[in-house]
Amino acid sequence: MDLNKQIQKLETIRNDNSNKVFTMYLNTDLSDPEQQGGEWKIHLKNGLRNFEQYLKEDDDKEELKNFQAVKEKVERFVVGNEQKFLKGIVLFATADEEVWFATRVQIPLETAFNWQETPHLEQLKQLSVDYPKTGIILIQQNEVKVIDSYLNEIEDTFSYELDLDTDDWREKTTTDTGSGSTNQHTEKFEDRVEANQQRWYKKIAPKLDKQAKDKSWENIYVIGESDPANELKEQMNKPVNEVIQKNMLDHEESKVLQEVFG
């Protein structure tokens, strides 16, 4: 999903008749203390009911009919995805389905509902600012792991290992057993690291620069111990937003995202 393209598309929508646009940001984060009892269900029910009641009182039969059609689609989507909830749902809809965008996101949201001529895009725009296409590069001795993330979710991961026999990097496959973790390789690496670190990271940097270009990273973070992390940053042509001086290559990827995005 390219959120910026979706925002551009939604920005062109304006319905001045009874076929208005429904906007929903729904917090479904079960780790949120305020959501422990499934409060999102109450917020959803009340939010939809309030609009329906208002339109009944306003006696606009056509607009009420359109809203009820949207309400049915919204409830169907929520029920259909309840077992796959992340932290929130973002949804935009019209009765004629000219507008239909619904997605689950791994990002905290502030619950809000709107039924107006135009979609309310403020929270969506902020998500694209706070969680852009990001490359997270973890470095530890003779290994480099890359996490390609977008909107606080992992899009892809891949790793490189330094072949100490050829002095070159190769991309690891799922069948690799991680030979760099043996004592023999570790000692061999540590014996040569001081003399060769700059040259080694100069070789891997172009591969990472290419990944940054191909995957359209807007932000880049390098995580690792001070010397290798800073050396890798210096060798890369793409600007690095921040060096985080922690050894996290073997940590769960969700913990790495939490370290970067908070």
Rank of each mutant, 00 (worst) to 15 (best):
Y221D: 01
T186G: 08
I204Y: 04
E225K: 11
N219A: 15
N183C: 06
I223Q: 09
E218D: 15
S216H: 15
D227N: 10
A212Y: 04
Q198P: 00
I204Q: 01
V193P: 06
N196S: 10
A205T: 01
W200P: 04
I204P: 03
E190L: 13
D209Y: 06
R192I: 01
Y201E: 00
E190D: 08
E190P: 01
N183D: 10
S226E: 12
K202C: 09
Q198V: 14
W217M: 00
S226G: 03
R192C: 11
R199N: 15
P228Y: 06
K188I: 03
G224E: 03
S226L: 10
G180R: 08
S181G: 07
N183I: 12
L208D: 03
A205G: 03
R192T: 06
A205V: 06
S216A: 14
V222R: 11
Y201Q: 01
A195C: 09
Q197S: 10
Q184C: 02
G224S: 10
I223H: 09
Y201F: 12
E218T: 14
I223T: 04
G180C: 09
Q198H: 11
E190W: 07
I220M: 00
L208Y: 04
G180N: 05
Q184K: 01
I220T: 02
N219R: 14
K210V: 04
N196H: 07
E225T: 14
E225P: 09
G180E: 11
D227H: 13
Q184V: 02
G224Y: 04
P206L: 04
D191E: 15
K210M: 11
N183Q: 13
K210C: 05
T182M: 09
V193G: 10
D191V: 07
A212I: 09
N219M: 13
I204F: 00
D227R: 14
Q211I: 00
E225S: 13
W217R: 03
W200F: 05
N183H: 12
W200Q: 12
Q211W: 01
N196V: 01
N183Y: 13
I204T: 01
Q197D: 12
A212P: 06
R192F: 03
W200E: 02
Q211P: 07
E187Y: 05
Y201N: 03
F189W: 02
R192K: 07
I204M: 02
G224K: 00
N196E: 03
K202W: 01
S181T: 09
A195S: 14
L208H: 04
R192D: 11
T186S: 13
F189P: 05
E218N: 13
G224H: 03
E190G: 10
S226P: 03
R199T: 11
E218W: 06
D227L: 15
V222G: 10
